[in-house]
Structures are given as structure tokens and as C-alpha cells.
């Protein structure tokens, strides 16, 4: 019985890696080989799929576009959330609890509800098919999350720090950037990580708000999955490449993962 519990994490990880392996497996085969039969590894290993993606602008721009709006969103969300989280953490003001709660309710909003309205809204302000549109749209969910995470970390910083700086004659901006922010870099890291994560994986809104110029890789991929031109190899390669940024990010924050998921509040 003890043996089983020791191997459970291993078994689970194998389960997780299986579909990913399968995707990689397919990405190194030509579509013909894939449709030809079942094999656990490529009989004729080929990089042609990857070559297509990395040389065809309609493909690689998809990645570029996605990375662009995700970065924009992360920067905007965290930048806006920092002062707000500070206010929630340090001040009591009219309507603060209600405001906080209202922010959180947006995280509970089904994106499907917003698909059509967003389409109309962003078209109306002539931001349709821009990176900034998707970046702003994702703020709906990411800002409440960023505020929640940052507020948690900020509450862990003693108020004495603020008071000492005030007594020492620091102006507020100087205090905030030179003293306060360095104490919560872990929190900023966690918030940025989650903003990146949710913006990178979200598809519905990203697809709805773009068509050509800011088309995310997700939309390009679904084009390939239509019944005509079901290019499995290419699809697999495209999918495999989308795993790379995520893997990178996790690797960098690997030491904070468990702590970060506790969101500093548990």
C-alpha cells in the first residue's frame, strides 16, 4: 500500500505527459504519415511542420500577436493594480468593501456573456483587431485577480515601514517605488505570473476581438482544424510551440509555485 502512494505522483505525471508527448509525436510526422497509421514515435522524423510555422508569417505572427497582447495586459494589469491594492491594504474609504467585492465578481463573469458586447464595444471605439483591445479586454478578469493577490502580499508588510518613511521625509512616490515595491517583489511576481497565465490561455475573447492584424495563434490554429485541410502535423507543431512559453515561465517561477498558489493569504 505504501508503494502505491509513493508512485502516485509519478503515475499522475505520466498521465499528464501522455497527451503532450502525443502532440510532440505528431508534430514530427508528416500529415500523410499520421493518417497512414498508428505509431508510438515518428517512423520518418521530420521538421517540415516546424519549418512551415517558423517561416510563414500567417503562422508565426500568431505567436507574436499573442505574446504582444499578453505582455501588454500583464503590464497594464499589474501597474493599475499596484496603487489600488495599496489603497485597499492601507486605507479605509467610502465603499471600499463593496468596491473590492465588485472587482471580484468580474472574475466570476462568464466570458461567453461578454463575447458579443465586447465585439460591439471595441468596434465602436475603433479598437477592433488591435492588440490593445485584447489586452484591455483581459483586464476584466486579470485586474481583480492582481489586486487580490497584491493586497494579500501588501497586508503582510507592516505599516511601520510607511510611517518611518513618512517621518524620514520621503515623498509618497519616492517611498512607494524605492522602499515599498521592493518588499513585495514576490507578490508582483505572483500577480504577473497569473496575469500572464490567464491572458495567454484565454481564447474566446481573443478570437472575438481580432481578425487579421492582431490574430492570436489560437485563431490561426482553428483555421487549420476545419474539415477541409485538416493538417494534423502542422496543427500538432503549432500546438507544441504554444507550450514553450508556458514551460519557460513555470521554470522561472518554479521555486515560488507552491507559495504563490497559496496567494500569500493562506
Amino acid at each position: 500500500m505504501m508503494r502505491l502512494t509513493k508512485y502516485t505522483p509519478v503515475l499522475y505525471i505520466i498521465f499528464l505527459m501522455l497527451p503532450i508527448y502525443w502532440l510532440l509525436n505528431m508534430s514530427f510526422k508528416t500529415t500523410n504519415e499520421i493518417l497512414g497509421g498508428f505509431s508510438l514515435y515518428p517512423q520518418e522524423f521530420t521538421l517540415v511542420n516546424y519549418k512551415t510555422i517558423l517561416t510563414d508569417p500567417t503562422w508565426y505572427m500568431g505567436y507574436v500577436n499573442s505574446m504582444l497582447y499578453v505582455s501588454f495586459n500583464t503590464v497594464i494589469s499589474v501597474a493599475a493594480a499596484l496603487p489600488a491594492a495599496y489603497a485597499f491594504s492601507r486605507f479605509r474609504f467610502l465603499g471600499d468593501k463593496h468596491l473590492f467585492f465588485w472587482l471580484l465578481t468580474n472574475r466570476m463573469a462568464p466570458p461567453a456573456v461578454f463575447a458579443l458586447p465586447f465585439f460591439q464595444l471595441y468596434s465602436a471605439v475603433e479598437l477592433f483587431d488591435t492588440h490593445i483591445a485584447v489586452a484591455l479586454a483581459h483586464c476584466l478578469f486579470n485586474i481583480p485577480l492582481a489586486v487580490w493577490i497584491l493586497e494579500g502580499f501588501m497586508s503582510g508588510v507592516p505599516k511601520e515601514l510607511d510611517e518611518t518613511a513618512y517621518v524620514d521625509g520621503y515623498s509618497f512616490p519616492r517611498f512607494f517605488f524605492k522602499i515599498f515595491v521592493p518588499t513585495i517583489t514576490a507578490g508582483i511576481g505572483v500577480a504577473a505570473f497569473f496575469c500572464f497565465m490567464f491572458s495567454w490561455v484565454e481564447l474566446l475573447l481573443a478570437k472575438t476581438l481580432t481578425s487579421v492584424d492582431a490574430k492570436p495563434i489560437a485563431a490561426t490554429m482553428t483555421r487549420t482544424a476545419s474539415t477541409s485541410g485538416y493538417e494534423l502535423g502542422l496543427l500538432a507543431a503549432a500546438g507544441s510551440l504554444t507550450i514553450v512559453p508556458g514551460a519557460f515561465v513555470i521554470y522561472f517561477v518554479r521555486n515560488y509555485i507552491a507559495k504563490g498558489f497559496a496567494l500569500g493569504r493562506v
Binding site: L16, W22, M26, L203, I243, G246, I250
Partner: peptide
């Protein structure tokens, strides 16, 4: 363990769907 377990969480959702479609 943590990195490998977290990997599925950072895959774009449409890729998840496509991956399982192929799978």
C-alpha cells in the same frame, strides 16, 4: 514535480482541446 504538474495549466485552452482531439 511541481513544474511538470503545472504544465497543463499554462497551455492555451484551444491547444488543450486540439491536443485531446488528436489524442
Amino acid at each position: 514535480c511541481l513544474v511538470l504538474m503545472a504544465l497543463p495549466l499554462l497551455i492555451p485552452w484551444n491547444v488543450v482541446g486540439a491536443m485531446w482531439n488528436i489524442f
